[in-house]
Design a protein around this nucleic acid. Structure first.
Length: 242
DNA sequence: GCCCAGGCTTAAA
DNA sequence: TTTAAGCATGGG
């Protein structure tokens, strides 16, 4: 078994199932209702969440999502119609709110113009075409695009994030690889993970979520190697005598 | 007060 | 083609 699969198995035993992507219900964050979107409105919520969580903790995003739901703004046309300042104020808690307000509008304008406002139409594209389309929107980069593809469109693509880079850099840490060898190398990491695993949406879903959990709580900037289920296979942990 | 968070764009070297 | 600055709130 390759190391990437091995890591998944260890994490899946170490942590409970993650049930990503979290979706709110009835205007509230609802932890019982978080196995991904069930309709287009919730798919749109996943997309907005993916944009709002750029370089931002989910806690701060959740408040913004709740606000949008309360004002009935999970709707591409309504987002286009509301003015920038109003929208920015609504999503203030998610940080970079002025930029992110524009990003939400950019996506909605794109959806209305090219796909008649229909996510079903957009998601009808082949995976690669869908990715290219998403990346053409100003404000959507590789991680946001892939999150949308995996968690809203439910097509198999591996989402790489800062945690993935940090964790893999530390696992492979040795004389040649330093602690940041794989940071900021999106394509290389994505290829590595996708070539090591079956192309399975649910697997990619859970794996990414597990890496986030590990990155947030154990493999932090200052890592807690003593608590880490991967420390026996981790070059960085070994180097620190764990 | 300082550090960090589920990135992306733009402009300069 | 790589690197830096700017964006900004909220929690530890």
């Amino acid at each position: 078994m390759n190391q990437i699969k091995q890591i998944y198995d260890i994490l899946a035993k170490f942590y409970a199932p993650q049930h990503w992507w979290p979706v709110t219900s009835k205007g509230k964050a609802n932890p019982e209702y978080c196995d991904g979107p069930k309709n287009e409105k919730q798919e749109l919520e996943v997309i907005f969440g993916a944009i709002l969580t750029q370089n931002t903790s989910w806690k701060n995003v959740e408040k913004a999502i709740i606000n949008l739901n309360k004002k009935n703004l999970m709707d591409a046309i309504k987002i286009i119609e509301i003015d920038n300042k109003n929208l920015a104020e609504m999503i203030k808690s998610s940080g970079y709110h002025n930029q992110k307000a524009k990003k939400l509008k950019n996506f909605c304008a794109f959806l209305l113009k090219n796909y008649n406002g229909s996510l079903k139409n957009l998601f009808g594209n082949e995976l690669q075409k869908l990715r290219d389309e998403l990346l053409s929107v100003n404000g959507i980069g590789p991680e946001t695009a892939d999150s949308i593809i995996l968690y809203a469109a439910k097509k198999p693509i591996f989402v790489v994030d800062a945690y993935t880079g940090r964790i893999w850099s530390r696992i492979t840490y040795d004389e040649k690889n330093n602690e940041k060898s794989y940071e900021g190398n999106y394509g290389k990491l994505q290829k590595l993970f996708m070539e090591s695993l079956e192309q399975d949406t649910q697997l990619f879903n859970e794996y990414h979520a597990l890496l986030v959990e590990l990155g947030k709580n154990i493999c932090k900037k200052k890592p807690l190697c003593e608590n880490c289920p991967l420390n026996e296979m981790c070059g960085y942990a070994k180097n620190r005598n764990f």
